[in-house]
Structure formats: structure tokens, C-alpha cells
Computed example of a mutant assay.
Amino acid sequence: MAESSGTENKDQQKPKSPGVLKVMQSILAGAFGVQSDKRRQEDFSGHSPWPYIIAGVLFTASFVLGLIVIVNLVLASQ
């Protein structure tokens, strides 16, 4: 029984990394300004910020490239 409680303590000390879906939800909510303070605190408590930083940079780059493509398509059709 002592072994299982030791394993549980190790699991509690090491926070589980956020899943891809959770990171995407947080990035999209933050980008559109609807991220709740509770969710923001949950995202950054005990987790590494790197998944959020990488996803944020990728989202921003794809958003800007998407805008460039849309503007070029609109200007080309005139």
C-alpha cells in the first residue's frame, strides 16, 4: 500500500501537460478576447508555457497569411 501512495504523490507533483484541444481552445479564446480569468489561470498554473507560445505564434502567422491571401484575391478580382 505504501508503494501506491508514493506513486500517487509523484503523479500529483508532476502536472499533466495540456492536450492539443485544450491549447487550441485557449489560443482561440485569447485571440478573440473571450478567455475567462479562471481558464487563463488554469492554463498557466503548473504547465509549461511553451505549448501556448508555439500555438499562439502559429495561429498568428496563419491568421496574417490568411488575411494576405484574402486581400490578394479581392484585389485580383477587381
Rank of each mutant, 00 (worst) to 15 (best):
Val71Cys: 05
Pro51Met: 01
Ser36Tyr: 09
Ile68Asn: 02
Gln41Glu: 07
Phe59Pro: 00
Lys38Ile: 10
Ser36Pro: 04
Ser36Met: 06
Val64Phe: 14
Tyr52Ile: 07
Pro51Phe: 08
Pro51Cys: 03
Ser5Ile: 11
Leu73Asn: 12
Ser4Trp: 04
Gln35Asn: 08
Val74Trp: 14
Phe32Leu: 08
Ile70Lys: 14
Leu58Met: 09
Arg40Trp: 11
Ala29Trp: 01
Arg40Leu: 13
Arg40Glu: 07
Lys22Arg: 15
Gln13Cys: 02
Phe32Tyr: 12
Ile53Pro: 02
Glu42Lys: 06
Val64Met: 06
Ala76Gln: 15
Ala61His: 02
Thr60Pro: 00
Leu58Arg: 13
Leu28Val: 15
Met1Asn: 05
Pro15Asp: 02
Phe44Glu: 02
Ala29Ser: 13
Lys22Gln: 11
Ala55Val: 07
Ala61Tyr: 01
Ala76His: 13
Gln78Phe: 10
Trp50Asp: 02
Ser62Glu: 04
Trp50Met: 10
Trp50Ala: 10
Ile68Tyr: 08
Glu42Pro: 00
Phe63Trp: 15
Glu3Pro: 01
Tyr52Gly: 04
Leu58Pro: 01
Ile68Val: 15
Ser62Ala: 10
Leu58Val: 15
Glu8His: 05
Leu65Lys: 11
Gly6Phe: 02
Ile68Pro: 03
Ala76Thr: 15
Gln25Glu: 11
Ala76Ser: 15
Glu8Cys: 03
Val69Phe: 07
Ile70Met: 09
Gln12Asp: 07
Val20Pro: 03
Ser77Lys: 15
Gly30Thr: 00
Asp37Arg: 06
Gln41Ala: 02
Ser17Ala: 15
Gln25Asp: 10
Phe63Val: 12
Gly46Val: 09
Gln13Tyr: 05
Lys14Glu: 10
Pro18Asn: 00
Asn72Lys: 14
Asn9Ala: 14
Phe59Ala: 05
Pro18Leu: 09
Ser4Arg: 13
Pro51Trp: 11
Met1Val: 08
Ala2Glu: 10
Val71Phe: 12
Val20Cys: 06
Ile68His: 01
Gln25Trp: 07
Phe63Ile: 07
Met24Ala: 11
Ile27Glu: 02
Ser77Leu: 08
Gly19Asp: 13
Leu21His: 08
His47Gln: 13
Val23Ser: 01
Pro51Leu: 03
Ser77Gln: 11
Pro15Trp: 13
Arg39Phe: 03
Gly19Ser: 15
Lys38Val: 13
Gln78Thr: 08
Ile70Pro: 00
Gln78Pro: 01
Ser36Cys: 08
Asp43Ile: 05
Ala55Asp: 06
Gln12Arg: 14
Leu58Asp: 01
Gly30Ala: 12
Arg39Gln: 08
Gly6Pro: 00
Thr60Asp: 04
Ile54Pro: 00
Val23Asn: 06
Arg40Gly: 04
Leu73Ile: 09
Leu58Trp: 01
His47Phe: 07
Ile53Phe: 13
Phe63Gln: 10
Ser5Ala: 06
Leu73Cys: 05
